[in-house]
Nucleic acid binder design. Sequence first.
DNA 1: GCATATTTGTCCGTATGTATA
DNA 2: CTATACATACGGACAAATATG
Lengths: 252, 252
Amino acid sequence: MGDDGTVPPTPPVAADTPAVGGGPGWLRTVADEARALDRSSTAERVADVLRRRITEGDLPPGTRLSEEQLVAALRVSRNTLREAFRLLTHEGLLVHELHRGVFVPELDADALVDLYRLRRAVECDVLRSLEQVDPERLRPLHHDVAAARAASAREDWVAVGTANMRFHSHLVALAGSRRMDEVSARLLAELRLAFHAVASPRVLHEPYVERNAVLLGLLVEGRFGPAVEELEGYLRASESQLLEALRGRPPR
Amino acid sequence: MGDDGTVPPTPPVAADTPAVGGGPGWLRTVADEARALDRSSTAERVADVLRRRITEGDLPPGTRLSEEQLVAALRVSRNTLREAFRLLTHEGLLVHELHRGVFVPELDADALVDLYRLRRAVECDVLRSLEQVDPERLRPLHHDVAAARAASAREDWVAVGTANMRFHSHLVALAGSRRMDEVSARLLAELRLAFHAVASPRVLHEPYVERNAVLLGLLVEGRFGPAVEELEGYLRASESQLLEALRGRPPR
DNA sequence: GCATATTTGTCCGTATGTATA
DNA sequence: CTATACATACGGACAAATATG
């Protein structure tokens, strides 16, 4: 009953847990590493691992994350794992169903529209309320555009997508608002889930490299009005494209 | 060493836990009630209790919530309590400091500015993107204005504040966006924390009853442009007033 | 529809590390 | 610096709900 199709096989989540052997207890666990190296809690460290697995597509939408298996794979207690589940649930990267467990969410068309609704509100407001901007603060944006172009040249479309998303993170950061940064980060993380539903990452990311460059050019020139319009069109185009791709393959 | 001054005295959190007697185990606990009455988890029930205590001011900003005391008072396990902590942390009603515990956050001036920044972005965007609105959907707003006026007449300023906040919740709901509703709910919950820092709730809520009525009137007439301007001015006025009150009592 | 097996929800007790007096 | 209090993390256990045959 492992591969009946309803639930994809559980991926190797414990890949970065060195197979030291069978002896339990004394061996080096995720918890040990957290205490030894980091300033973060074990739960956050576990969440980091799962977050990467989810956003990189190793755990596709619809997957159920079994407590039992993950406890064994990550060598943490159930309580710690559940704490990590909570963190990711709050980020929108997991959904919790009572007495059924946690799942990687599947973004349907409605969710995507909802997501872009808030995304437009936040990102456009950031530009709209800019009155002047220190060129120094645009440096991260220049860097992201350069990175996207470089990745595009070597046809690394995943890297292009990452650079594009960084660009928009840095765009929101211009507002200097912690809460806007958090909302934006959550939206972009959720957006990645939708990306995995699209077959060709090229058509998904390539067109937006130069649009980001255009947008940045308008910001450099201080033409914030046109910048808002460009961004608005950018986001609507991106939304439409994703919606079309999503309808193209509704077969989960 | 309970009242050394650094930490406010722990309030009677267990007030709604009936003192059935000394016998442990068999007595009626929060967990039992949750299972017996509700469809929600114990953690959510605990979160409900704490949420009320916090928003009503029983647990003022700066208070540390001791795990040990709350476990004893609420008769739940540490795991369940920590789960409730996570829920409230996500709502912005608690902040977590590693190895130090959870605290009721204190909103300083910077946080307030940040909060209003995002609030303006969301609420104004809702109105800006309205093109027409079914009068039926404005009914909750009419109800909130009426409730605020009634409470104002009997000088129940806390009720006025509640009605005003409901008004803005329902305003955001016009967008029909789950994510916008969630963001807005979190912002308004945080805002309540700032309200407790102001001595007179009257000056805080009374002026906005009629401004909400004016705003609603513009919506009824379909004049969305002026409505956006009115809302913008409304929010800036509210922010300025709160900032002034906050600077007036920076103590602690 | 019913009985069984699996999985989650909750609780307990303990050990260890960290922050603070 | 030592001591204390507390949060973090672990593992085991049972109850409750779901899923399966």
